[in-house]
């Protein structure tokens, strides 16, 4: 393992008004690691994921990606907020896949995947198109490049969304329950794509209820509840031999 963790969270706090959602999260994600985040609904998993690419601002603690503070610059012992442009630049290296896909409905699959490289990196269209076609091929949608999202199944849409994130060549991928909006028979095709990514050494943080995936593919697993990390360890250990009562109670419901 390399010296710099891909993600490092130290006592991360987040509240919405009076609601204290994250109450001091400490964790480290190593490069090339598949890091699974599980926990009951409302425990703050999505919130934490959104803090990592600064879709939400944290109220306390420190959060860094690849050694860089998220959303701030440190000079001496003072923190300076980053400008919108700098925040956008940080986000380029972090791909995110949403529960509800959030594909751009007015663009075809190919255009969805091309959009960010062309608009954000200023890449030539021909180059972006070629890469987009290759990525769609890789997620098994080489024959669907001209389809609009409304003409694709949920599983296909989610695979396009993964290709769209990969087009920016991120060093970290965030997955927020990527399969929980899918019909059961479509879950497998998305998990297969994610498994392929893991095999190639992509660093991934995966919020999921798919314990089978966590056990097979995950390198680390964290159980969150009430805005804190309750238990962490290797997925097989935590899932088969949980130490805390809350973990046991949760696992007995989902397994």
């Amino acid at each position: 393992m390399s010296a710099v963790p891909m993600v490092k969270a130290e006592a991360v706090h987040k509240s919405y008004g009076a609601a204290h959602i994250l109450r001091g999260i400490d964790l480290e994600v190593a490069p090339r690691e598949v890091f699974c985040l599980v926990g009951p609904s409302g425990s703050g998993k999505s919130t934490f994921l959104r803090c990592i690419n600064h879709l939400e601002k944290i109220n306390g603690g420190r959060l860094s990606v690849d050694g860089q503070l998220v959303g701030y610059r440190q000079k001496g012992d003072k923190l300076y907020e980053l400008k919108d442009k700098e925040v956008a630049a940080q986000r380029r290296d972090i791909g995110m896949v949403f529960q509800r896909f959030n594909l751009f409905p007015h663009m075809t699959a190919l255009e969805n995947v091309m959009e960010a490289p062309v608009q954000v990196k200023g890449e030539a269209k021909a180059v972006a198109r070629e890469r987009a076609a290759r990525l769609l091929d890789r997620v098994g949608l080489g024959d669907r490049t001209g389809n609009y999202p409304s003409q694709l199944s949920g599983g296909q849409q989610q695979r396009v969304a993964i290709a769209r994130a990969l087009a920016m060549e991120p060093k970290l991928m965030l997955f927020d329950e990527p399969t929980s909006a899918l019909d059961p028979e479509l879950v497998g095709e998305v998990l297969d794509v994610m498994r392929g990514l893991a095999d190639e050494g992509m660093t991934m943080i995966v919020v999921t209820h798919e314990m089978g995936f966590a056990r097979e593919v995950g390198d680390a697993l964290v159980f969150m509840d009430g805005g804190v990390v309750v238990e962490s360890g290797h997925p097989r250990e935590v899932l088969t031999n949980p130490q805390h009562d809350r973990t046991k109670a949760f696992l007995s419901k989902v397994l």
């Binding site: 879709l55 956008a88 986000r91 995110m96 959030n102 960010a116 954000v120």
Partner: peptide
């Protein structure tokens, strides 16, 4: 849908680009 803005921001698009595109 707000998810559209989030997806665009997550891809590194600026506010202006997100609005226009």
């Amino acid at each position: 849908d707000e998810g559209q803005t989030e997806a665009a921001h997550a891809l590194g698009m600026s506010h202006g680009k997100t609005l226009r595109r």
